[in-house]
């Protein structure tokens, strides 16, 4: 069974004159992958992820056509509180998400609301603090923490629900470059250690996230225009032409390709660029 399945799905927010923000979407998301969801601003990325945990249509109302299934559960029917056990959402700005007096309470908040027993919650708190490496911060107030630490707390508070899928909407945009890399590597570790089964990241900094991604989904004007393995997608015709921030190594080799000086695959990283040179 797919983790997420969109069937002939379209959505339009109520009260807005604009057209459907998502159109004719058929999409399947499987387990065990690090997926980059990319598209220009206003292409529908955030709306798409809202439809993956039932926030659309249950919290954001509007006209919805078709269905979305989370592990076979229809998001029209199953309450978001239950869907949040399968799909966790981390927003761009952790300040919008953090609300408790200290980090421990923050992590406990989700499981408590699902009525999970205290012993179990306690062990989940310990586990989550350890996994995201913030055990030393457990008694601190979230608002005293740095941006990177807050983002870790936000991730831990979603992990405590033990979701299969974590979706992060621009998780690193407020972080300095090293802080951003550390968060993305943390996510990759979570996947490799099987703490979650799939990760979807919306990210404009493609230079950081491409080397970590197994798969890319491209969205444009509310439609999915490409889904595939990272190398296949960046070597396809669409990726370079929809206004994304193309990493410079990719641009360099693409230009060389256009000039017929290079014929191979485009590199995802500096390391792959160097491999190309070594092989020449």
């Amino acid at each position: 069974m797919n983790l997420i399945k969109f069937e002939d799905f379209s959505f339009k927010y109520s009260g807005q004159a604009q057209d459907f923000v998502l159109k004719d979407i058929d999409l399947e998301i499987d387990q065990g992958k690090f997926i980059l969801l990319s598209g220009i601003t206003g292409s529908g990325k955030t709306s798409l992820v809202r439809a993956m945990n039932g926030l659309i249509p249950q919290f954001y109302h509007g006209e919805m056509i078709g269905n979305v299934f989370v592990k076979g559960k229809n998001t029209r029917e199953v309450p978001t509180s239950l869907l949040s056990k399968e799909v966790g959402l981390v927003f761009q700005n952790p300040e919008n998400q953090l609300l408790a007096m200290n980090v421990e309470r923050e992590i406990a908040f989700g499981p408590e609301n699902l009525g999970i027993e205290w012993n179990e919650i306690d062990s989940r708190i310990k586990e989550c603090l350890k996994v995201v490496n913030i055990e030393h911060l457990k008694k601190k107030a979230p608002f005293e923490l740095s941006g990177g630490e807050q983002q870790r707390v936000a991730i831990a508070s979603v992990l405590s629900l033990q979701p299969e899928l974590i979706i992060l909407d621009e998780p690193t945009s407020l972080l300095d470059p090293l802080g951003a890399i550390r968060i993305l590597l943390l996510l990759k570790d979570l996947l490799q250690e099987k703490k979650v089964s799939t990760i979807i990241v919306i990210e404009h900094r493609l230079d950081l996230v491409l080397p970590l991604s197994d798969e890319i989904i491209l969205i444009d004007k509310g439609r999915i225009i490409e889904q595939g393995k990272t190398h296949e997608v960046i070597n396809g015709d669409i990726f370079l032409n929809i206004g994304l921030n193309i990493p410079k190594c990719v641009s360099v080799f693409q230009t060389l390709k256009n000039d017929k000086l290079y014929q191979g695959k485009l590199p995802l990283s500096v390391q792959e660029s160097i491999e190309i040179i070594k092989m020449s």
Partner: peptide, 29 residues
Amino acid sequence: TSLTSPQLVKFSKSLTELGEKVPEDIFLV
């Protein structure tokens, strides 16, 4: 300062380590 080198600066450095004679100030596409 928690920053990283730009991609092409890293790339130039790695090329130099490979023994290629890369001019020092390459950082634009």
